[in-house]
Simulated assay, not measured.
Amino acid sequence: MRKMYKMAFGMLVVGSSILVGTLWNFQVSGVSTTPGTADDPVVTKSYVDQQIQKALGGGGTTTPTNPTTPTSPTTPTQPSQGSDEVKNVALKPGKILIADAGAEFIVRSGNAVIYTEDSNGVADLTDGKDLLNGQAAPKNHLLSFPREGRGIQVKEGQKNGLIVMVRGGYTIK
């Protein structure tokens, strides 16, 4: 009998706690109730981007970048200006795209092979391995060139050129 009283008392306590909890409506102080008010404003992505640019010293205006078309430098022996801008470069058969130290390439179309004058290679950051002279450069892989004098060229026998995304300085020989 005592067991039944204990069980009934427990059910009464739990049931009354649930009833009191649902009927007792209170609000936590310090929490805004309505998003979009002055206390809790809703902002857009463009506003956040603008504020980030201001904080970084970029002025606050962001302009969308226009997609670049594949181009080739007008003077092949003159090195390009190194920057963080990504450029699409068209490389014709027989030409070699030589990277400046720290440049990064991504082969977008065509078949490319690695070109180096020494025994060291180029870092394939996508697969995490070293590509040596004459090895195929995989498409859509990020290639890092730690030193000058290394690059890529069109695979021998291919009639079409390459389209390569380049970040950093480069020279076409």
Rank of each mutant, 00 (worst) to 15 (best):
G168T: 04
Y5V: 12
T34K: 15
L23W: 00
N160K: 10
D40S: 10
N111R: 08
P35A: 07
V28E: 11
Q50S: 15
K139T: 11
I18M: 00
F145N: 03
K6G: 13
S17L: 01
G161C: 02
A8E: 01
V13Q: 06
N111D: 13
S109R: 05
I152G: 09
D118R: 09
N88H: 04
G151V: 05
K139P: 08
Q153G: 04
T65S: 12
V164G: 12
K159Q: 08
V14C: 12
S72E: 09
T126W: 07
T126L: 09
Q78C: 09
Q50T: 14
K54W: 05
G168E: 07
E104Y: 14
T171K: 15
M4L: 15
P41H: 03
G57I: 01
L12P: 10
S72P: 03
V43T: 14
G82D: 13
T61M: 12
L162Q: 08
G59A: 13
F145H: 05
A103P: 04
G94P: 03
Q78W: 08
M4Y: 02
T75I: 13
G157N: 09
P35Q: 05
D130T: 15
D118E: 04
K159T: 10
T71I: 03
I98W: 03
A112Y: 03
P93F: 09
T74I: 10
Y47T: 11
V154S: 05
G82R: 04
Y170G: 06
I152W: 05
R167M: 15
P138N: 11
V20L: 05
L143R: 01
N120T: 13
G169F: 03
T77E: 10
V13G: 03
M165C: 13
S109V: 02
Q51S: 01
I96D: 00
V42C: 11
G30F: 06
F105M: 10
T75Q: 15
P76H: 12
S46G: 12
D84Y: 06
K129L: 14
S119E: 09
V43E: 13
M165E: 15
K159R: 06
T68V: 08
T22W: 00
F145S: 06
T77I: 05
V89M: 00
T61F: 12
K95I: 02
I106N: 07
G82K: 06
L56N: 13
L143W: 04
Y47K: 11
T68G: 11
I152F: 05
G121W: 13
T116E: 00
G30S: 08
L97R: 09
G169N: 11
P67A: 01
M7E: 07
N140R: 07
K129G: 04
S144M: 08
S83P: 01
Y47S: 14
G128L: 08
R147E: 01
D127N: 15
G21R: 01
I106Q: 08
L56A: 10
N25I: 11
G58E: 10
F145Q: 07
D130L: 15
S17V: 00
L162T: 07
R108G: 02
L19S: 09
M165S: 15
S109D: 04
L142Y: 12
R108N: 07
T44F: 13
L142P: 09
K6C: 12
D124N: 14
R150V: 11
P64I: 05
K155S: 05
K139L: 14
E148W: 05
M4H: 06
R147H: 06
R167Y: 12
K139H: 05
K129V: 12
